[in-house]
């Protein structure tokens, strides 16, 4: 097992390294480095001083090395707009994004999987067909537009929910979270639902496909031949088999959720990393952009690793093979 983890860690390290090259390459070679990293309103002397200070007059591989060393020290540049270290800005806003993404993941799994199981067990029923039609709608609807319509309907016309922003937060282990308060929840509900729609559809389709495939397998027929009750067959035999692929896919999708939350954050003015990134792009605050991309890459790699490990824990066939190997 530990061999497996070490191997995956090494692979992840390589991926992060490659991505850092790509990000660095993108920022410093394709674009104009002076433009990218220096405040455009500085005067000529300051510009030259900054160029020297940032080492931009040095050859490219030295620049990259400089970048890498700084990155490992935790310095990914300073924001132009806020004057603060970019990394600090992003970490400040990360809890809000993670909370949103997590809430969306929970929603999509809790709603999507049972619906998918039902649609898989009774594929010709009227309810199933509407579920499947709904799922097509779910992944066809453009998220940002749905968000707008939700605000339109629930906030403006009906006045049930607040339209934007994050609600009151309560610190949990030092990190502010908003789902412990009513106010926090009411602010969280719409954005989380909005973000969850896409993944809910995915969960429904994935689960349904898994059920349709599993239901014809011999082990289900054998379970019936043993006289097991249908509830048990579904709960234990069926679910255990489909949950493995479904949870791994959904787990991997968590990374996507975090990235995609920038759309929802923009629509609902949710103070997360995503909103920061959009504003930074529009304001040409490139250090923040670079920092965001590197953080996201790291998060992604981490999630992939966790999911891989989770998969080998859940599926006995994989787990035992590794022990033998």
């Amino acid at each position: 097992m530990s061999v497996f983890i070490i191997r995956r860690l090494m692979q992840s390290g390589i991926v992060v390294l490659v991505m850092s090259v790509l990000v660095f390459f993108g920022v410093n070679v394709i674009g104009d480095p002076v433009d990218m990293l220096i405040n455009p309103e500085a005067d000529q002397e300051d510009i030259e001083a900054t160029i020297r200070a940032l080492g931009l007059d040095r050859p490219i591989h030295e620049q990259y090395w400089y970048f890498l060393v700084n990155a490992l020290k935790g310095d990914l540049g300073k924001s132009f707009i806020f004057g603060e270290p970019a990394l600090k800005l992003i970490l400040q806003r990360m809890p809000a994004t993670l909370e949103l993404a997590f809430a969306a993941l929970i929603m999509s799994v809790v709603v999507g999987i049972p619906l998918g199981v039902y649609a898989g067990l009774k594929p010709d029923s009227w309810a199933s067909k509407s579920i499947m039609a709904g799922s097509i709608l779910g992944f066809s609807l453009p998220t940002f537009w749905v968000g707008l319509m939700m605000i339109m309907l629930f906030a403006v016309m009906l006045g049930w929910l607040p339209s934007t922003g994050r609600g009151d937060t309560v610190p949990l282990l030092g990190v502010p979270v908003s789902f412990f308060t009513w106010d926090g929840l009411s602010h969280l509900l719409m954005p989380a639902l909005n973000l969850a729609l896409l993944k809910m559809s995915l969960a429904i389709r994935l689960t349904r496909a898994g059920v349709r495939e599993a239901i014809h397998q011999d082990y289900i027929k054998f379970a019936r031949a043993k006289g097991l009750r249908t509830a048990r067959i579904i709960r234990v035999h069926l679910m255990k088999n489909i949950l493995i692929p479904v949870t791994t896919v959904m787990g991997l999708e968590f990374g996507n959720l975090i990235a995609f939350s920038l759309v929802t954050e923009t629509v609902f003015a949710w103070p997360g990393m995503g909103k920061l990134i959009i504003d930074s792009i529009n304001n040409l605050d490139r250090p923040v952009v670079v920092a965001y991309l590197m953080i996201t890459v790291l998060l992604f790699v981490l999630i992939n690793l966790v999911v891989d490990i989770l998969y080998s824990v859940l599926d006995p066939r994989v787990r035992l093979q590794d022990i033998k190997a």
Binding site: Q217, D218, Y219, K221, F222, A223, A225, H237, K240, N241, I244, D315, P316, R317
Partner: peptide
């Protein structure tokens, strides 16, 4: 049944 690999639930 005929094929025990598939009749026993692998997980």
């Amino acid at each position: 049944f005929q094929d025990p690999m598939m009749t026993l639930n692998p997980v």
